[in-house]
Design a protein around this nucleic acid. Sequence first.
RNA 1: GUGGGUAUAGCUCAGCUGGUAGAGCGCUGCGUUGUGGUCGCAGAUGUCGCGGGUUCGAGUCCCGUUACUCACCCCA
Length: 446
Amino acid sequence: MASKIAPLSGFPELLPADRAVERQVVETLSRTFELHGFANIETRVVEPLDRLAKGGEIDKEIYVLRRLQAGDEDGDSGLGLHFDLTVPFARYVLEHAGHLEFPFRRFQIQPAWRGERPQEGRYRQFTQADVDIVGKDVLPFHHDVEVMRVMVDALDALPIPPVSFQFNNRKLIQGFYRGLGLPDVTTAIRTIDKLDKLPAEQVAALLVSDAGATPEQAQRCLELATIRVADTSFVDRVRALGVEDELLDEGLVELAAVVEGCSAGDHRHVSVEANLRIARGLDYYTGTVVEIFMEGYERLKSVGGGGRYDALATDGRSTYPGVGVSFGVSRSLIPLLADGVLAGSRPVPSAVLVAVADEETRAQSTAVATALRARGIPCEVAASAQKFGKQIRYAERRGIPYVWFPGEAHEVKDIRSGDQVAADPADWTPPIEDLRPQVLVKETEK
RNA sequence: GUGGGUAUAGCUCAGCUGGUAGAGCGCUGCGUUGUGGUCGCAGAUGUCGCGGGUUCGAGUCCCGUUACUCACCCCA
């Protein structure tokens, strides 16, 4: 069956069993966000290009929308597909500010598009889950802790490998650099961000050449950046570096609060650290910043991130500060599915295949299915009245665990064990784990 | 955007210094004629990515092209 159909690079599609896993992940995330009182919204997929290009994000390889029937003279529509969920959200807040209550808490799980070269964990169309809180003119700091904590809980509930939240704070870095007397704080932050790619000496040299630091100042910057602890002991270690600054103090207090707030309580597989070299390239962050990493998948870089931005949006009269964090659903899930770490237990929702003895009695089989469905048991009726062996095979191929044989005395067979028992369509129920497709997790703990 | 690799059956892949296409898995049927999975036997399937060139002859060599893929860059 030679066909010209070929996969489109960067636009992944999942088979039904994998899609079931993705749907469950999205559902689990949604449930956690809602437990914390976040409302769901969905924004349109396009934004005006000038809005998308705002804030130095033009490098995001925006897909432009064009009408096929538009003449050459008409130019483009001036619309582009959004490359993240933050820009549309900022616009949404401005557009609907009059109808929203602030602080406004929302989550959003939608695809986004970027025209970059695809790679493992990097796609041209990908789904991400964002959770943010936005205030009007003011947004108390405790919301930083709150929103980060929501994502900690949300990822802890997912059937994925352990994840690590690495926090830092822009005020801490900026205050430290300022207190140190660095002339170009912004460049210094960008330079320090390169620490995971370049050796420390080279970063130090760049700090001197690009950010105007003295060799001593560069050394202090590196010392700050190497601090990484799972508790609040970083406060003393930073103080020991001997830099005095008001903003630095503020950053230390905030970071300590975030680390404490997110570590509190029991988590199955989420760990929390203060990592003082996390900067995040984007310059709109003003306080808390976070990057999320997944164990065994460090090659993907961060699977999520976010932070505090004091001016998510402005309408001239008010500014809307926000704090939020996003999780790359496609970025993390697709590699996990490809590696078989996660798998769907079956490609169909049906828990039961109701066999058909012959076409004359199909109505009886349909009645059984109706009775099962009435009690919430997903099932389907056999497509044709083949030999029972064929019908069992049909179920087996689809991973349907039970085959129902209608008759004077109904019987249901668990085709995995071969056990067959008498059953009543009015009250037989499969074990809860067989009711819906499950997410299977490969147990390969090192 | 830059650089490498790959393209053959539904899937994974083999096919030597050119001689007219194969394996495993899967699929269909039968053994077992209304209870599958194991086993045995039988069977079906390809514009060898596309276009051109060299040659008596190209899956194989050359050129081009497209797609996929990996790395760099960057990010969810």
